[in-house]
Design a protein around this nucleic acid. Sequence first.
DNA 1: GTCTATATTATGATAGAC
DNA 2: GTCTATCATAATATAGAC
Lengths: 204, 204
Amino acid sequence: MNARVRQREATQASILKAALQEFSSKGFDGASTREIAAGAGVHHALIKYHFKSKELLWRAVVAELFDQEMEALELPSPDDAAFADPRTYGRETIRRRARYWARNPEHARLMVQEAFRDGDRLAWMIEEHRARFGDADEAFVRFLQTHGLVPVNAPLASLVYIILGATQFFFAAGPQAKRMWGVDPADREVIDRHVESLAQMLIP
Amino acid sequence: MNARVRQREATQASILKAALQEFSSKGFDGASTREIAAGAGVHHALIKYHFKSKELLWRAVVAELFDQEMEALELPSPDDAAFADPRTYGRETIRRRARYWARNPEHARLMVQEAFRDGDRLAWMIEEHRARFGDADEAFVRFLQTHGLVPVNAPLASLVYIILGATQFFFAAGPQAKRMWGVDPADREVIDRHVESLAQMLIP
DNA sequence: GTCTATATTATGATAGAC
DNA sequence: GTCTATCATAATATAGAC
Protein backbone atom coordinates (compact mmCIF):
# COMPACT_ATOMS: atom_id res chain seq x y z
CA MET A 1 0.00 0.00 0.00
CA ASN A 2 1.83 3.06 -1.27
CA ALA A 3 1.51 6.70 -0.33
CA ARG A 4 -0.87 7.43 -3.20
CA VAL A 5 -3.39 4.90 -2.02
CA ARG A 6 -3.20 6.09 1.55
CA GLN A 7 -3.73 9.69 0.48
CA ARG A 8 -6.65 8.65 -1.66
CA GLU A 9 -8.35 6.87 1.18
CA ALA A 10 -7.67 9.71 3.59
CA THR A 11 -9.24 12.20 1.20
CA GLN A 12 -12.28 10.05 0.60
CA ALA A 13 -12.69 9.42 4.32
CA SER A 14 -12.57 13.10 5.18
CA ILE A 15 -15.10 13.90 2.46
CA LEU A 16 -17.41 11.15 3.68
CA LYS A 17 -17.16 12.41 7.24
CA ALA A 18 -17.92 16.00 6.30
CA ALA A 19 -20.73 14.85 4.01
CA LEU A 20 -22.41 12.90 6.80
CA GLN A 21 -22.30 16.03 8.94
CA GLU A 22 -23.82 18.20 6.21
CA PHE A 23 -26.44 15.74 4.98
CA SER A 24 -27.59 14.81 8.47
CA SER A 25 -27.99 18.35 9.71
CA LYS A 26 -29.38 20.05 6.59
CA GLY A 27 -30.87 17.22 4.58
CA PHE A 28 -29.88 16.26 1.05
CA ASP A 29 -31.31 19.34 -0.62
CA GLY A 30 -30.00 21.74 1.99
CA ALA A 31 -26.49 20.37 1.97
CA SER A 32 -24.04 21.85 -0.52
CA THR A 33 -21.04 20.07 -1.94
CA ARG A 34 -18.94 23.21 -1.48
CA GLU A 35 -19.69 23.28 2.23
CA ILE A 36 -18.84 19.61 2.42
CA ALA A 37 -15.54 20.23 0.66
CA ALA A 38 -14.80 23.11 3.02
CA GLY A 39 -15.59 20.91 6.03
CA ALA A 40 -13.31 18.20 4.71
CA GLY A 41 -10.56 20.71 3.97
CA VAL A 42 -10.32 19.72 0.32
CA HIS A 43 -10.99 21.48 -2.94
CA HIS A 44 -14.61 21.13 -4.04
CA ALA A 45 -13.66 19.67 -7.40
CA LEU A 46 -12.32 16.62 -5.57
CA ILE A 47 -15.84 15.56 -4.70
CA LYS A 48 -16.71 15.18 -8.34
CA TYR A 49 -13.43 13.40 -8.88
CA HIS A 50 -13.89 10.85 -6.11
CA PHE A 51 -17.67 10.42 -6.06
CA LYS A 52 -18.88 11.57 -9.50
CA SER A 53 -21.92 13.47 -8.18
CA LYS A 54 -23.73 14.74 -5.08
CA GLU A 55 -26.24 11.90 -5.37
CA LEU A 56 -23.52 9.24 -5.50
CA LEU A 57 -21.67 10.86 -2.61
CA TRP A 58 -24.87 10.59 -0.60
CA ARG A 59 -25.18 6.92 -1.50
CA ALA A 60 -21.60 6.32 -0.41
CA VAL A 61 -22.38 7.93 2.95
CA VAL A 62 -25.47 5.79 3.43
CA ALA A 63 -23.71 2.59 2.41
CA GLU A 64 -20.91 3.29 4.87
CA LEU A 65 -23.44 3.90 7.65
CA PHE A 66 -25.18 0.61 7.10
CA ASP A 67 -21.90 -1.27 6.88
CA GLN A 68 -20.72 0.21 10.13
CA GLU A 69 -24.06 -0.17 11.91
CA MET A 70 -24.15 -3.93 11.66
CA GLU A 71 -20.89 -4.48 13.45
CA ALA A 72 -21.30 -1.57 15.86
CA LEU A 73 -24.69 -2.75 17.09
CA GLU A 74 -23.38 -6.05 18.44
CA LEU A 75 -26.92 -7.32 18.75
CA PRO A 76 -27.25 -10.34 21.02
CA SER A 77 -28.99 -13.52 19.93
CA PRO A 78 -32.14 -14.54 21.79
CA ASP A 79 -30.64 -18.00 22.20
CA ASP A 80 -27.68 -16.64 24.10
CA ALA A 81 -27.43 -18.49 27.39
CA ALA A 82 -26.70 -15.22 29.15
CA PHE A 83 -30.34 -14.18 28.78
CA ALA A 84 -32.43 -15.88 31.41
CA ASP A 85 -35.76 -14.82 29.93
CA PRO A 86 -37.26 -12.99 26.94
CA ARG A 87 -37.72 -9.77 28.92
CA THR A 88 -34.01 -9.57 29.75
CA TYR A 89 -33.15 -10.15 26.11
CA GLY A 90 -35.67 -7.58 24.92
CA ARG A 91 -34.40 -4.92 27.27
CA GLU A 92 -30.78 -5.60 26.42
CA THR A 93 -31.52 -5.26 22.72
CA ILE A 94 -33.27 -1.94 23.32
CA ARG A 95 -30.24 -0.77 25.30
CA ARG A 96 -27.78 -1.67 22.54
CA ARG A 97 -29.86 -0.03 19.87
CA ALA A 98 -30.24 3.11 21.94
CA ARG A 99 -26.52 3.24 22.64
CA TYR A 100 -25.83 2.95 18.95
CA TRP A 101 -27.99 6.01 18.25
CA ALA A 102 -26.29 7.82 21.12
CA ARG A 103 -22.91 7.23 19.47
CA ASN A 104 -24.21 7.95 15.97
CA PRO A 105 -26.81 10.71 16.14
CA GLU A 106 -25.90 11.79 12.59
CA HIS A 107 -26.97 8.41 11.31
CA ALA A 108 -30.32 8.80 13.03
CA ARG A 109 -30.79 12.32 11.62
CA LEU A 110 -30.01 11.27 8.09
CA MET A 111 -32.36 8.29 8.18
CA VAL A 112 -35.16 10.28 9.74
CA GLN A 113 -34.98 13.01 7.13
CA GLU A 114 -35.03 10.51 4.30
CA ALA A 115 -38.18 8.97 5.74
CA PHE A 116 -40.07 12.24 5.20
CA ARG A 117 -39.93 12.42 1.43
CA ASP A 118 -40.72 9.85 -1.20
CA GLY A 119 -38.48 9.68 -4.22
CA ASP A 120 -35.45 8.08 -5.81
CA ARG A 121 -33.23 8.26 -2.75
CA LEU A 122 -35.76 6.60 -0.46
CA ALA A 123 -36.45 3.96 -3.11
CA TRP A 124 -32.75 3.24 -3.51
CA MET A 125 -32.18 3.06 0.23
CA ILE A 126 -34.95 0.52 0.75
CA GLU A 127 -34.08 -1.46 -2.35
CA GLU A 128 -30.40 -1.63 -1.51
CA HIS A 129 -30.42 -1.88 2.26
CA ARG A 130 -33.78 -3.29 3.24
CA ALA A 131 -32.25 -6.50 4.50
CA ARG A 132 -30.00 -4.56 6.81
CA PHE A 133 -32.47 -2.30 8.52
CA GLY A 134 -35.97 -3.58 7.92
CA ASP A 135 -35.49 -7.27 8.57
CA ALA A 136 -33.73 -6.88 11.89
CA ASP A 137 -36.48 -4.57 13.17
CA GLU A 138 -39.17 -6.96 12.02
CA ALA A 139 -37.54 -9.97 13.66
CA PHE A 140 -37.10 -8.13 16.94
CA VAL A 141 -40.71 -6.93 17.08
CA ARG A 142 -41.99 -10.41 16.24
CA PHE A 143 -39.89 -11.81 19.05
CA LEU A 144 -41.37 -9.30 21.50
CA GLN A 145 -44.89 -10.12 20.35
CA THR A 146 -44.34 -13.87 20.58
CA HIS A 147 -43.40 -13.49 24.22
CA GLY A 148 -46.20 -11.06 25.02
CA LEU A 149 -43.82 -8.20 25.79
CA VAL A 150 -45.64 -5.79 23.47
CA PRO A 151 -49.32 -5.73 22.44
CA VAL A 152 -49.84 -8.84 20.28
CA ASN A 153 -52.75 -7.35 18.38
CA ALA A 154 -50.75 -4.28 17.30
CA PRO A 155 -49.68 -3.99 13.64
CA LEU A 156 -46.04 -4.80 12.98
CA ALA A 157 -45.19 -1.48 11.35
CA SER A 158 -46.76 0.47 14.20
CA LEU A 159 -44.56 -1.25 16.75
CA VAL A 160 -41.45 -0.81 14.65
CA TYR A 161 -41.98 2.94 14.40
CA ILE A 162 -42.98 3.33 18.05
CA ILE A 163 -39.80 1.61 19.20
CA LEU A 164 -37.61 3.33 16.61
CA GLY A 165 -39.04 6.78 17.33
CA ALA A 166 -38.74 6.37 21.06
CA THR A 167 -35.19 5.04 20.77
CA GLN A 168 -33.77 7.53 18.28
CA PHE A 169 -35.42 10.86 18.86
CA PHE A 170 -33.72 12.04 22.04
CA PHE A 171 -30.28 11.54 20.54
CA ALA A 172 -31.17 12.89 17.12
CA ALA A 173 -32.70 15.98 18.72
CA GLY A 174 -29.55 16.75 20.70
CA PRO A 175 -29.31 20.45 19.80
CA GLN A 176 -32.91 21.06 20.84
CA ALA A 177 -32.64 19.01 24.02
CA LYS A 178 -29.61 21.02 25.06
CA ARG A 179 -31.06 24.41 24.37
CA MET A 180 -34.56 23.72 25.61
CA TRP A 181 -34.09 21.33 28.51
CA GLY A 182 -30.48 21.96 29.42
CA VAL A 183 -29.69 18.28 28.93
CA ASP A 184 -26.92 17.01 26.67
CA PRO A 185 -27.75 13.66 24.99
CA ALA A 186 -24.06 13.20 24.26
CA ASP A 187 -23.21 13.15 27.95
CA ARG A 188 -22.32 9.73 29.31
CA GLU A 189 -24.43 9.92 32.42
CA VAL A 190 -27.40 11.33 30.53
CA ILE A 191 -27.12 8.44 28.07
CA ASP A 192 -27.04 5.83 30.83
CA ARG A 193 -30.15 7.15 32.52
CA HIS A 194 -31.99 7.59 29.24
CA VAL A 195 -31.21 4.06 28.14
CA GLU A 196 -32.57 2.67 31.39
CA SER A 197 -35.74 4.78 31.08
CA LEU A 198 -36.20 3.41 27.57
CA ALA A 199 -35.76 -0.21 28.58
CA GLN A 200 -38.25 0.18 31.41
CA MET A 201 -40.84 2.00 29.34
CA LEU A 202 -40.76 -0.11 26.21
CA ILE A 203 -40.47 -3.50 27.91
CA PRO A 204 -42.35 -3.09 31.21
CA MET B 1 -63.96 43.39 4.72
CA ASN B 2 -63.52 44.34 1.09
CA ALA B 3 -62.26 42.29 -1.84
CA ARG B 4 -58.71 43.57 -1.50
CA VAL B 5 -58.41 42.24 2.03
CA ARG B 6 -59.91 38.91 1.11
CA GLN B 7 -57.53 38.53 -1.81
CA ARG B 8 -54.60 39.45 0.42
CA GLU B 9 -55.50 36.83 2.97
CA ALA B 10 -56.11 34.21 0.31
CA THR B 11 -52.68 34.85 -1.20
CA GLN B 12 -50.95 34.73 2.16
CA ALA B 13 -52.80 31.57 3.13
CA SER B 14 -51.84 29.77 -0.07
CA ILE B 15 -48.21 30.80 0.35
CA LEU B 16 -48.19 29.61 3.97
CA LYS B 17 -49.70 26.30 2.96
CA ALA B 18 -47.18 25.70 0.19
CA ALA B 19 -44.35 26.85 2.46
CA LEU B 20 -45.29 24.33 5.15
CA GLN B 21 -45.20 21.61 2.54
CA GLU B 22 -41.75 22.67 1.26
CA PHE B 23 -40.15 23.36 4.61
CA SER B 24 -41.43 20.17 6.20
CA SER B 25 -40.31 17.87 3.43
CA LYS B 26 -36.97 19.47 2.50
CA GLY B 27 -35.98 21.42 5.57
CA PHE B 28 -35.34 25.16 5.69
CA ASP B 29 -32.13 25.08 3.66
CA GLY B 30 -33.45 22.66 1.08
CA ALA B 31 -36.68 24.53 0.51
CA SER B 32 -36.69 27.23 -2.15
CA THR B 33 -38.97 30.24 -2.26
CA ARG B 34 -39.50 29.73 -5.96
CA GLU B 35 -40.82 26.22 -5.42
CA ILE B 36 -43.05 27.56 -2.68
CA ALA B 37 -44.39 30.24 -4.99
CA ALA B 38 -44.99 27.65 -7.70
CA GLY B 39 -46.81 25.43 -5.21
CA ALA B 40 -48.97 28.32 -4.12
CA GLY B 41 -49.65 29.34 -7.70
CA VAL B 42 -48.36 32.87 -7.20
CA HIS B 43 -45.44 34.85 -8.56
CA HIS B 44 -42.29 34.38 -6.51
CA ALA B 45 -41.89 38.10 -5.93
CA LEU B 46 -45.08 38.03 -3.87
CA ILE B 47 -43.30 36.11 -1.14
CA LYS B 48 -40.93 38.97 -0.58
CA TYR B 49 -43.86 41.37 -0.71
CA HIS B 50 -45.96 39.57 1.89
CA PHE B 51 -43.30 38.08 4.14
CA LYS B 52 -40.17 40.17 3.58
CA SER B 53 -37.76 37.20 3.53
CA LYS B 54 -37.46 33.42 3.52
CA GLU B 55 -36.59 33.48 7.21
CA LEU B 56 -39.67 35.54 8.13
CA LEU B 57 -41.87 33.33 5.98
CA TRP B 58 -40.58 30.36 7.94
CA ARG B 59 -41.40 32.13 11.20
CA ALA B 60 -44.90 32.86 10.00
CA VAL B 61 -45.37 29.18 9.18
CA VAL B 62 -44.16 28.11 12.62
CA ALA B 63 -46.29 30.70 14.42
CA GLU B 64 -49.37 29.55 12.55
CA LEU B 65 -48.63 25.92 13.45
CA PHE B 66 -48.38 26.65 17.15
CA ASP B 67 -51.53 28.78 17.09
CA GLN B 68 -53.47 26.04 15.40
CA GLU B 69 -52.03 23.23 17.49
CA MET B 70 -53.36 24.53 20.76
CA GLU B 71 -56.96 24.51 19.68
CA ALA B 72 -56.68 21.43 17.50
CA LEU B 73 -55.26 19.29 20.28
CA GLU B 74 -58.30 19.69 22.54
CA LEU B 75 -56.34 18.32 25.44
CA PRO B 76 -58.50 17.16 28.33
CA SER B 77 -57.95 18.34 31.88
CA PRO B 78 -56.95 15.72 34.46
CA ASP B 79 -59.72 17.05 36.70
CA ASP B 80 -62.36 16.25 34.12
CA ALA B 81 -65.00 14.09 35.76
CA ALA B 82 -65.09 11.89 32.68
CA PHE B 83 -61.74 10.38 33.61
CA ALA B 84 -62.20 7.77 36.27
CA ASP B 85 -58.49 7.36 36.97
CA PRO B 86 -55.07 8.73 35.99
CA ARG B 87 -54.41 5.87 33.57
CA THR B 88 -57.55 6.63 31.57
CA TYR B 89 -56.58 10.29 31.44
CA GLY B 90 -52.99 9.49 30.43
CA ARG B 91 -54.04 7.20 27.63
CA GLU B 92 -56.63 9.63 26.32
CA THR B 93 -54.04 12.39 26.22
CA ILE B 94 -51.66 10.14 24.29
CA ARG B 95 -54.45 9.36 21.85
CA ARG B 96 -55.29 13.01 21.22
CA ARG B 97 -51.67 13.94 20.73
CA ALA B 98 -51.15 11.06 18.35
CA ARG B 99 -54.24 11.97 16.37
CA TYR B 100 -53.00 15.52 16.08
CA TRP B 101 -49.75 14.29 14.50
CA ALA B 102 -51.74 11.99 12.25
CA ARG B 103 -53.69 14.98 10.95
CA ASN B 104 -50.62 17.23 10.80
CA PRO B 105 -47.60 15.17 9.76
CA GLU B 106 -46.03 18.27 8.16
CA HIS B 107 -45.97 19.94 11.55
CA ALA B 108 -44.15 16.96 13.02
CA ARG B 109 -41.64 16.91 10.15
CA LEU B 110 -40.85 20.57 10.43
CA MET B 111 -40.37 20.43 14.21
CA VAL B 112 -38.22 17.32 14.01
CA GLN B 113 -35.90 18.83 11.42
CA GLU B 114 -35.45 21.99 13.43
CA ALA B 115 -34.44 19.91 16.44
CA PHE B 116 -31.39 18.61 14.56
CA ARG B 117 -29.49 21.84 14.14
CA ASP B 118 -28.63 24.54 16.58
CA GLY B 119 -28.82 28.12 15.40
CA ASP B 120 -30.97 31.22 15.15
CA ARG B 121 -34.12 29.46 14.05
CA LEU B 122 -34.06 26.96 16.91
CA ALA B 123 -33.28 29.73 19.37
CA TRP B 124 -36.16 31.84 18.08
CA MET B 125 -38.57 28.92 18.16
CA ILE B 126 -37.80 28.09 21.76
CA GLU B 127 -37.68 31.73 22.87
CA GLU B 128 -40.96 32.58 21.19
CA HIS B 129 -42.98 29.41 21.64
CA ARG B 130 -41.52 27.59 24.62
CA ALA B 131 -44.65 28.15 26.67
CA ARG B 132 -46.73 26.50 24.01
CA PHE B 133 -44.82 23.33 23.38
CA GLY B 134 -42.42 22.76 26.25
CA ASP B 135 -44.65 23.51 29.19
CA ALA B 136 -47.51 21.26 28.14
CA ASP B 137 -45.14 18.33 27.62
CA GLU B 138 -43.52 18.91 30.98
CA ALA B 139 -46.83 19.10 32.82
CA PHE B 140 -48.07 15.91 31.19
CA VAL B 141 -44.93 13.93 32.01
CA ARG B 142 -44.97 15.16 35.60
CA PHE B 143 -48.57 14.04 35.90
CA LEU B 144 -47.67 10.57 34.62
CA GLN B 145 -44.76 10.33 37.08
CA THR B 146 -46.85 11.51 40.00
CA HIS B 147 -49.26 8.66 39.41
CA GLY B 148 -46.55 6.10 38.79
CA LEU B 149 -47.56 5.52 35.16
CA VAL B 150 -44.00 6.05 33.90
CA PRO B 151 -40.67 5.40 35.65
CA VAL B 152 -40.49 7.96 38.48
CA ASN B 153 -36.69 7.95 38.57
CA ALA B 154 -36.37 8.78 34.86
CA PRO B 155 -35.20 12.27 33.86
CA LEU B 156 -37.94 14.59 32.68
CA ALA B 157 -36.37 15.35 29.30
CA SER B 158 -35.83 11.65 28.56
CA LEU B 159 -39.49 10.90 29.08
CA VAL B 160 -40.57 13.87 27.00
CA TYR B 161 -38.51 12.72 24.04
CA ILE B 162 -39.45 9.07 24.42
CA ILE B 163 -43.14 9.91 24.33
CA LEU B 164 -42.76 12.51 21.61
CA GLY B 165 -40.62 10.28 19.40
CA ALA B 166 -42.92 7.30 19.81
CA THR B 167 -46.00 9.42 19.13
CA GLN B 168 -44.76 11.41 16.13
CA PHE B 169 -42.44 9.21 14.14
CA PHE B 170 -44.86 6.83 12.45
CA PHE B 171 -46.89 9.70 11.03
CA ALA B 172 -43.91 11.86 10.15
CA ALA B 173 -42.29 8.93 8.36
CA GLY B 174 -45.36 8.30 6.20
CA PRO B 175 -43.55 8.05 2.85
CA GLN B 176 -41.10 5.49 4.21
CA ALA B 177 -43.78 3.49 6.02
CA LYS B 178 -45.77 3.26 2.81
CA ARG B 179 -42.89 2.21 0.60
CA MET B 180 -41.18 -0.10 3.04
CA TRP B 181 -44.01 -1.67 5.01
CA GLY B 182 -46.94 -1.12 2.68
CA VAL B 183 -48.83 0.71 5.40
CA ASP B 184 -50.29 4.19 4.96
CA PRO B 185 -50.18 6.29 8.16
CA ALA B 186 -52.78 8.60 6.64
CA ASP B 187 -55.35 5.80 6.46
CA ARG B 188 -58.13 6.05 9.02
CA GLU B 189 -58.04 2.43 10.08
CA VAL B 190 -54.25 2.40 10.31
CA ILE B 191 -54.39 5.49 12.51
CA ASP B 192 -56.96 3.95 14.84
CA ARG B 193 -54.93 0.80 15.39
CA HIS B 194 -51.68 2.71 15.78
CA VAL B 195 -53.18 5.07 18.35
CA GLU B 196 -54.39 2.11 20.41
CA SER B 197 -50.98 0.45 20.21
CA LEU B 198 -49.37 3.67 21.42
CA ALA B 199 -51.74 4.09 24.35
CA GLN B 200 -51.14 0.50 25.43
CA MET B 201 -47.38 0.64 25.09
CA LEU B 202 -46.72 4.01 26.68
CA ILE B 203 -49.23 3.69 29.54
CA PRO B 204 -49.34 -0.04 30.33
C1' DG C 1 -51.70 44.40 -5.42
C1' DT C 2 -49.31 42.18 -9.10
C1' DC C 3 -45.85 41.33 -12.43
C1' DT C 4 -41.42 41.90 -15.45
C1' DA C 5 -36.74 42.61 -15.36
C1' DT C 6 -32.54 42.33 -13.10
C1' DA C 7 -28.77 42.32 -9.54
C1' DT C 8 -26.08 39.26 -6.82
C1' DT C 9 -24.70 35.22 -4.99
C1' DA C 10 -24.42 30.19 -4.60
C1' DT C 11 -24.57 25.75 -6.53
C1' DG C 12 -23.49 21.40 -9.21
C1' DA C 13 -20.70 20.19 -12.71
C1' DT C 14 -16.70 20.17 -15.96
C1' DA C 15 -12.44 21.21 -18.81
C1' DG C 16 -7.88 21.62 -18.76
C1' DA C 17 -3.27 23.06 -16.57
C1' DC C 18 0.27 21.20 -13.57
C1' DG D 1 -3.76 13.16 -7.88
C1' DT D 2 -4.71 17.99 -7.30
C1' DC D 3 -5.97 22.58 -8.39
C1' DT D 4 -7.51 26.89 -11.20
C1' DA D 5 -10.74 28.66 -14.17
C1' DT D 6 -15.17 28.53 -15.98
C1' DC D 7 -20.03 27.26 -17.36
C1' DA D 8 -24.90 26.89 -16.74
C1' DT D 9 -28.31 27.04 -13.62
C1' DA D 10 -30.97 28.28 -9.66
C1' DA D 11 -31.28 30.76 -5.54
C1' DT D 12 -32.64 35.10 -2.63
C1' DA D 13 -33.58 39.58 -3.10
C1' DT D 14 -34.87 44.05 -5.17
C1' DA D 15 -36.25 47.94 -8.30
C1' DG D 16 -39.54 49.73 -10.89
C1' DA D 17 -43.50 49.41 -14.44
C1' DC D 18 -48.47 48.83 -14.57
